[in-house]
Design a protein around this nucleic acid. Sequence first.
DNA 1: AGTCTAAGGCTACGGGTGTACACCTAATAA
DNA 2: TTATTAGGTGTACACCCGTAGCCTTAGACT
Lengths: 232, 232
Amino acid sequence: MADRAEVPQAGGADTTPDPRPDEHARRPRSGAPSRRPRARRGEGARLRGEVVEAARRLLATTGDPADLSLRAVAREVGIATTSVYLHFATLDELLAEVKVTYFTDFGATLDAAADAAGDRPGVRVRARGLAYARWGAEHPGEYRAMFEAPTLAADAAAQVARAGAEVFAAMRDEAVEAAGRPDADLLAIHLWTALHGTVSLRTARPQFPWPDLTVEVDSLVTHLLGVPPATP
Amino acid sequence: MADRAEVPQAGGADTTPDPRPDEHARRPRSGAPSRRPRARRGEGARLRGEVVEAARRLLATTGDPADLSLRAVAREVGIATTSVYLHFATLDELLAEVKVTYFTDFGATLDAAADAAGDRPGVRVRARGLAYARWGAEHPGEYRAMFEAPTLAADAAAQVARAGAEVFAAMRDEAVEAAGRPDADLLAIHLWTALHGTVSLRTARPQFPWPDLTVEVDSLVTHLLGVPPATP
DNA sequence: AGTCTAAGGCTACGGGTGTACACCTAATAA
DNA sequence: TTATTAGGTGTACACCCGTAGCCTTAGACT
């Protein structure tokens, strides 16, 4: 009821020090503890970036979009609630952008892992698969947010889905090359669903006696793509 | 989460007319004849069953526990908000019970499918896998609720996990028998994660050009367990 | 010096939530 | 017929949420 004062509350421990005793603002009301410096004329987009960063952090903690509130983001950045609203027409828009950045990170990690593995397709796809599972295990919140049932508006959801499709396409191409079989497309889908299941179930059932991740992924690639284990 | 409206879902109007007077609508003993009949003396547990049923319906619509509020359940049953509280000390308790009933249904369906497939282990496990994927595809809300990251208190979560472990154990035993290999335990886990990934990704990415479910599951079983397709 | 405007803040409204506590009422046992 | 009690109801509290409308500030340009 009546929202009650909305004091800065120092929710996040990371409020910037802001050593400016200046304070000539003469707030008529409360003391107004050290406000965040306003961006320069042309740098309106800077706050936008900070908002996205904060939202990325918050969403990563649980992966549940319901936990990412406009107010929580504003609190984290240290701005007024409505200031988020200046850069994102709706919360869904922000959420979609955050998820896309996750996919960008994810895809880059997988590409890097594959490239580091060398040229042989079998080795590359194995490395990519392992990187997939590892990234998912290490970023459960992000992964969950990326691959959960769509709660967003249709267009925002499509944007996220497109980012995900790109990551899958890279893996599919590599898997197809490694398998070299007519039904390789289906095999690539198998690999994707199996990796996704691995990540997702491990997160959901941490108590289950899971085998070593490397062993599991290795075995999956071997069985699904027919690629023999690495032969140095 | 005031208005996280599921726009794309569309379909039926999700806001039922709700002919009941609002619970704050100061209706003294004037009329109010439309009240739900009270249970008989010994039948106090009857309401409990109705509450679970209502919660099952509600949770199934989205699978998101955040959408299952105490108030929504009470509204659905047609009782006062706090009456739910008579039978369940906390909302988590109700949620856990609902999820366990989902697992009971799920497990029974899988067992029935396997039994209907006959005696040969390879055929049985194939039927069970297909039933798994089908049930998941047909009950996306339930499935999501059953297998999502734990949001419940530890003991409630453990109860749900135990119910899930039982279902997996049945599949594992059958898969091990069908594969008849020393590493069959790992293969059973592969099958589980792959099936889970299939269900979960199809729900999360309905637009993706998925292959026919039967073809996909058949191919998975063949590749993962080394069981050849059915030979009549 | 004056003005314009981008950047951001404040307050409020109307809604949602779980849960504690006091109260009522009808079916039964005496 | 009356007392008891199982089976509920009503109200309230404290806390969340998105967002609409209006206000303030300061950098940049005349």
